[in-house]
Design a binder for these strands. Structure first.
Lengths: 109, 109
DNA sequence: CAAACATATAAATAATTGTTCAAATATTCG
DNA sequence: CGAATATTTGAACAATTATTTATATGTTTG
C-alpha cells in the first residue's frame, strides 16, 4: 500500500481515525460466520456451544471469532457456571445491525 | 421510520441469501481503501484519477477496488470523455453509510 | 482430588485477498 | 494515423486471515 502524503480526507465529517474504526467494524462483520454469530445473539445471550452447534462451527472456531468480536466491543461475554454466554454488546450495536438488515430487505423489493 | 427500541428479532426476517448479501457488503466496506473510495464520492461523481490522487493510491489499485464496488452495485460509473466518474450507487447506499457514520460518531462521545 | 465438561489459546496450515507491475483497451487531439 | 491521456485488466507477489489441530485453563461434580 502506498502511504505517501495522505491528503486530509475530503469525506463528509469523518476523520481518519473514525474511518479506520468504521472499516474495522465492517471488516469484522464481513465474515459470514462472525456476522451469523452476532445475529444469533442479538436478542438474548447464547452460550458458545449453542452458537457453535446452531451454526455448525467447531467450538474452537466459534471461540476464535467471538474473541475478535469481543475485542472490538461488538459483543460482551458473561460466565454462568461453566458456560460463557455471548450477546450483542449494547443497544447501539443492535440498532446498527437492525438498520443494515432493514436496508438489505428494502433492497430485495 | 421504525421503532428503535423494541422491535421483534431482526434476525428472524433474514434468510440466508440476505445474510450472505449483507456479509458481502460488510466485507467490501471492510477494506480501508475501498471504504474511503466510497466515502469520497458520496456526494458527487469523482474521476478515477482524482480518487487515486486524493487517497494516495495508484490508478491501477483504485480501479481494481472500484471494479469490486461496482460489481456489488455499491457504486456506479459514468464515462465523460476519457475520464470515468464514480459515485455511490444510489440514495440507499448513501443513507446506509450515513447511518453507520452516525453510529461511529455517537460511539466517540 | 480426579474426572468430565465448556471454553480459550497457540502454533501450523490452507485459503483468500490486497497490491504491484506490465501490458491492453478506449478516447481525444495533432 | 499516431501520440498522449485515462482507465482497465491479468498475472505474479506479498500479506492477511480463516480454519484446523492439539493443548491448556477454568468450572462443576463424584
Amino acid at each position: 500500500m502506498r502511504t505517501t502524503g495522505n491528503a486530509p480526507s475530503p469525506t463528509a465529517g469523518l476523520d481518519s481515525d473514525q474511518a479506520a474504526e468504521l472499516a474495522e467494524t465492517f471488516h469484522l462483520l464481513g465474515d459470514a460466520n462472525r456476522l451469523r454469530l452476532v445475529l444469533a445473539c442479538l436478542d438474548e445471550p447464547v452460550s458458545v456451544q449453542a452458537l457453535a452447534d446452531g451454526l455448525g462451527l467447531s467450538p474452537s472456531l466459534a471461540s476464535h471469532h467471538l474473541r475478535l468480536l469481543r475485542a472490538a466491543r461488538l459483543m460482551r461475554a458473561e460466565r454462568r457456571g461453566r458456560q460463557v454466554f455471548y450477546r450483542a454488546a449494547d443497544e447501539h450495536v443492535r440498532r446498527m445491525l437492525a438498520d443494515m438488515i432493514e436496508h438489505v430487505q428494502e433492497d430485495a423489493l
